[in-house]
Design a protein around this nucleic acid. Structure first.
Lengths: 210, 210, 210, 210
DNA sequence: CATGAATGAGAGTTCATTCAT
DNA sequence: AATGAATGAACTCTCATTCAT
């Protein structure tokens, strides 16, 4: 069984990583195979060798990225302590993860504003599982009489949409802060403040007041 | 074939309209000049005749679209009745306008997830003016002791981000509803329900409870 | 007969002048109708109205330019005084004229290096008449026993080719003079020195030494 | 169709050769990438693959062509025998080389009538080296008291300009010979006669008569 | 006579993808 | 597994030319 050459795996991983970065930065169409190949010092043909075509690579990138976030949330969530604690964990884990992987937010937003033109089943399923998890938390809260008047899809977007937008617009907001007559664009809010703030507000929205 | 109009304004308008639609549907890079030209039965060269290049056209489209929404909100807002009424008007006008012009949400989201890579001062200024208006409403409410703990940028995204996402993901959510084990994706919520719901929730987030 | 509007003539003349300049500077292909129109503040369609097409304009430009030089030489030449005086007059008039109309040299050289791809009969005839005149001078000198061993075509190019090249390369030679280790490129020779020098040398080439 | 070679050097060479020919025949602007590609049975994209863009190809063509002539003259010149012999060698080698490579004269003339608008240091340097060589011969002749009243730039153009013009106008002169009332345009002078004649005349121009 | 709108045919360039080695 | 050469189908943009007014 001798020396296993894991070059193949290494190459595939390099491609995924660099492609993810570039897709996030420039979008699907504006990212070229040449560019990706150069970024990872890999021959362009390898991209097609491993991922068949550009769409295949994109799909691999997305399912990698989304798979990761789903796992992170599942494992981090101290599931089932209480709906409120679960909610808090969801928000904070999601925010922290996106903040650490800043390409992710751009990828997700872009995909959603495309109505998933590029995205294949698998990735759609990932997005769906995440929402299912969230939905479950809200329904459990409602069942326990803690939350009321929930509309999971809307609440979900109020959370993840906002987090994603705050992350992708960070440079934009920082520039805006440097202009004259600056508005307060929360340009130096850090991610913990943001997720804390969002959690607090969502709690107000949902909790039954006695 | 393709009757010749020889009316500059009409031609320019046709180009803008069709380009807007296509840019919204497919994004900047994936939209081709040929496609736009065919969509408006105009010679491709006219695009360059009037807008110099693709970026120029995009820029014209964006400033048209954003200019329109800003005007709509300014004129519709029954400004200054009360912060709460203003807030309600803002949310509902914004949502209704985006719903009637469905390309708009996609354009805005895409631009935001790009950090405005594609474009220019004018359009940035438009986005900014809209936020400034919103920000002013919240501050006024705070001054009057009605609202508390406001972070305008975050609240703003919770509203417009959510509206935009719900609009762009409508087809996606409808498809999801047809699957087995469907989740409730609010797939047949209409825009008035949505904006009413958002308003109600935002009110809960902001209002000082006595 | 009232006020005669000579606008037509004025417009045509403006077009010729500006076209000549641009053709000389950039060559036939690299000069566009738009450019010419803008340069003379005339509507682009007028170019085609008056000259039918680009080739027609070029042809008009060339026959204007070459017609002028031919006339200039004919009328200036104190014809038939003596072959040597005629030769001197030819060289100096040609050089002075090209120097005053700097576009001309470029036009001629370009046309010659194209083997007259663009040039129509008329202009070919003009070039030919000029050469015929020159040829006649040499033959007359030979008949009178003043010149020997003449090969008119070669001598002709030694004169007009050299003058034209010195004129068109002036900027090039001036730049070369500013480099380190400059060569003497005759970069500040004026046209009178040049034509005097050429005449002197041609005389040495042709005159029968007693 | 068009057998695939997959030999980079061969492909690059084919492109250069055919491009040289076409640039010489039609000029820079009038030569299209399609035309070049077809001429060498190579995919059009290869031009850009190897030479980045049209200007890059042109530049490569010129430096190839000029490099070659310079080398030819350097190696052929039985340098330093005597200024007169060197001069003769220069003229004859130059003429013979241009005659064998007929595209070269057109390229050079065109470039000179453009004042080198199209191109770059490297090629400019090549032209310059050739002139430097020539200049050196004349100065050496002057130092040895053999030549007098030299103006190298002018003499240089009298030689190379004339040779180039005679070569490029060959078809033109042949046509002229077929007309009625033909002039003697040296239309069947061969290159050896021409260079011999030029050498003889230049000698008369330069030599100190005892 | 003059204008600006409109057109169609390309030109240069890019890019995903495949092939031969 | 990996490379660099090769391809073909676009794509953006330009330009001579014509048409309607």
């Amino acid at each position: 069984m001798a020396k296993v050459t894991r070059d193949a795996e290494a190459t595939k991983a390099k491609i995924i990583q660099n492609a993810m970065l570039l897709f996030a930065k420039n979008g699907y169409e504006a990212t070229t195979a040449d560019e990706i190949a150069k970024a990872c010092s890999v021959n362009k043909a390898m991209i097609f060798y491993y991922y068949k075509n550009k769409a295949g690579l994109y799909s691999a990138v997305m399912s990698y990225a989304l798979g990761a976030i789903h796992d992170e949330i599942i494992t981090t969530d101290k599931c089932c302590i209480s709906p409120l604690a679960d909610l808090e964990a969801f928000i904070k884990t999601y925010a922290a993860y996106c903040d650490k992987n800043p390409y992710l937010s751009a990828l997700i937003l872009r995909e959603l504003s495309d109505s998933g033109a590029h995205l294949p089943e698998m990735m759609f399923a990932s997005l769906r599982k995440l929402f299912a998890l969230f939905s479950e938390i809200l329904h459990e809260g409602e069942k326990q009489g803690l939350f009321h008047d929930i509309e999971p899809m809307i609440i979900y977007f109020m959370i993840v949409g906002t987090v994603n937008l705050l992350i992708t617009t960070k440079p934009l907001r920082e520039n805006a802060a440097k202009m004259e007559n600056p508005l307060n664009t929360c340009s130096d809010c850090d991610i913990d403040e943001i997720s804390e703030y969002i959690f607090k507000k969502v709690k107000l929205m949902l909790e039954v007041k006695e």
